[in-house]
């Protein structure tokens, strides 16, 4: 699949932002005054920058409000609702933490859970697609939630962050291991896709068109697969292993800052791979994957 920069920026930044809002909402950071303002501000900024970035790949962004209408069937619509609900309900908690109003923590808990629910809806947009076997697996939402919780814990400077980062490393290794076999497990080939396997062995005689088209650009993106192994190593090291080791050694503010930057860069690499490595069954009609 085409790794559109806007979608990668969106899912990485808003994922980390909502993860941070989750911990802030639940009251893990215990910040007061301007420290609280900066912390909540960072969570909101990441989430909102991400959400704005997501509108850049739309053909008609002016109609984006319509995405709120189909929550009964569409995960993308549910994501729109969950994100707005999380941002609205977290707002009084942020105000209370900043100005020391002492409003009940329950508000933040509801907002925090909604923030995590937003990440879940984002992951379900991809998980629901049967035509992309690598995504159509329960490990996809686990991976998205893993990134949100690990990134959120680092950004919220929690002492348990290294444990979450270690868990993220295991999730990444699992999703790559399982994902590599997903296409083969669905047992689709050029023969089964066309139904011509009932006659014999099928090969492409002539392509349907000589130039590129939307399908080839969007669904049959093959550039990234070449360097997949190296990128996986980079993603694993930067997103999980290095920040985990760093925070296990030192728990100072600088360690958390470096770990956060490191984690986010690694998350970008992992998310780029998430799209670039995913193969759509439509590629079969072209004799490609």
């Amino acid at each position: 699949m085409n790794p559109a920069p806007s979608v990668i920026v969106f899912s990485v930044l808003s994922g980390a932002g909502f993860g941070l809002l989750f911990f802030l909402g639940l009251g893990f950071a215990q910040a007061m005054g301007w420290t609280a303002f900066l912390w909540w501000g960072m969570g909101y900024a990441l989430a909102i920058i991400g959400l704005l970035a997501s509108t850049f790949h739309l053909g008609n962004p002016g109609r984006a409000w319509r995405a709120f209408t189909q929550w009964r069937t569409s995960w993308l619509s549910r994501e729109a609702w969950a994100s707005v609900a999380a941002l609205l309900i977290c707002a009084p908690m942020a105000l209370s933490d900043w100005l020391g109003l002492g409003w009940p923590r329950a508000i933040g808990m509801v907002g925090g859970v909604l923030a995590l629910a937003t990440v879940l809806t984002t992951s379900m947009i991809y998980t629901q697609i049967k035509a992309v076997p690598r995504w159509h697996h329960w490990l996809t939402p686990v991976m998205f939630l893993g990134f949100a919780l690990a990134g959120g814990a680092v950004l919220a400077a929690q002492s348990f962050a290294p444990i979450f980062l270690a868990a993220l490393a295991l999730i990444l290794l699992a999703i790559w291991q399982v994902g590599d076999g997903q296409f083969a497990r669905k047992a689709q080939s050029l023969g089964t896709a066309t139904g011509l396997d009932r006659i014999g062995e099928v090969t492409v005689f002539e392509q349907a068109h000589t130039a590129g088209n939307y399908l080839l650009r969007e669904m049959i993106f093959a550039v990234g697969r070449k360097h997949a192994q190296r990128l996986r190593a980079i993603a694993l090291a930067l997103a999980a292993v290095i920040p985990a080791v760093l925070l296990a050694i030192s728990a100072g503010p600088w360690a958390f800052a470096v770990a956060a930057v490191c984690h986010v860069i690694g998350a970008f690499a992992a998310r780029w791979l998430f799209f670039a490595e995913a193969e759509h069954v439509v590629g079969l009609f072209y004799g490609k994957r």
Binding site: L196, G200, F205, Q207, A208
Partner: peptide, 9 residues
């Protein structure tokens, strides 16, 4: 779009 395939029985 019309594809062309070679099928070997």
């Amino acid at each position: 779009r019309v594809h062309s395939y070679a099928v070997q029985p």
